[in-house]
């Protein structure tokens, strides 16, 4: 069994004492990302508390909307936030936003619980070639995400309902009847946020 402690040891990081200051400009990345990097590199419990207080209620809201009762939703919130702590070494701010990363962990767990099966998930990328965090790249991804948020904010109420159903909807029936109605076109150009750059980033990490 892999445990978080050994895998963190395996992966050299910039000095943990001042991870956010490790690269010039890191003070300009979003608070969420800074908290997450403090959790990842310094195992900072105060930063984790901030992430917890931001995400736990939102996760509970999403999980209840997704078909879990309050009690079970809290259990999944607990599992998700513990995973955020223990899998922090897998967080890579060059290719994921904290909220997207947390979203995906919670969605996986929610499906395991609701369908009582282990959801097939992709291999993790090998993290052997960890580079130092590059503030400019991280900020570029955050700017793309801001544009995506702006695009989401411009959806009509009807479109917004469809998009929310697609990403936050009820999973307890899992009776998706067809791949219809998702107004992806609106956000398509934005959704390809940094696709080229992301691809380059990923290619560097691809093992074969």
């Amino acid at each position: 069994m892999l445990n978080a402690a050994t895998s963190i040891q395996d992966r050299p990081r910039p000095p943990a004492s001042d991870p956010v200051g490790a690269s010039p400009g890191m003070s300009q990345v979003s608070e969420q990302t800074q908290w997450m990097l403090l959790v990842r590199d310094a195992r900072d419990k105060q930063a984790f508390a901030r992430l917890f207080d931001h995400f736990a209620p939102r996760l509970k809201g999403m999980l209840m909307r997704g078909g879990l009762q309050a009690g079970l939703a809290e259990e999944v919130v607990q599992d998700t936030m513990l995973s955020v702590w223990h899998k922090a070494h897998l967080f890579d701010p060059h290719r994921a936003q904290v909220s997207g990363w947390v979203y995906q962990i919670a969605r996986n767990r929610q499906i395991d619980v609701l369908r009582k099966e282990r959801r097939p998930v992709p291999e993790e990328l090998k993290g052997d070639d960890v580079q130092e965090d590059d503030a400019l790249q991280i900020i570029a991804l955050e700017q793309q995400t801001s544009r995506l948020r702006a695009a989401l904010a411009q959806l009509s109420p009807e479109q917004r309902v469809l998009v929310e159903q697609a990403y936050l909807g009820d999973l307890s029936h899992s009776e998706l009847q067809g791949l219809t109605g998702l107004p992806l076109g609106t956000i398509k150009s934005r959704i390809r946020l940094g696709l080229k750059r992301l691809r380059r980033e990923l290619q560097n990490k691809q093992t074969t």
Partner: peptide, 18 residues
């Protein structure tokens, strides 16, 4: 990218008490 959309919607979502 799709997970980023999910995350953005999560960020905007309801906040029931914990």
């Amino acid at each position: 990218s799709h997970e980023t959309v999910g995350g953005a919607l999560l960020d905007d979502g309801d906040t029931p008490s914990i």
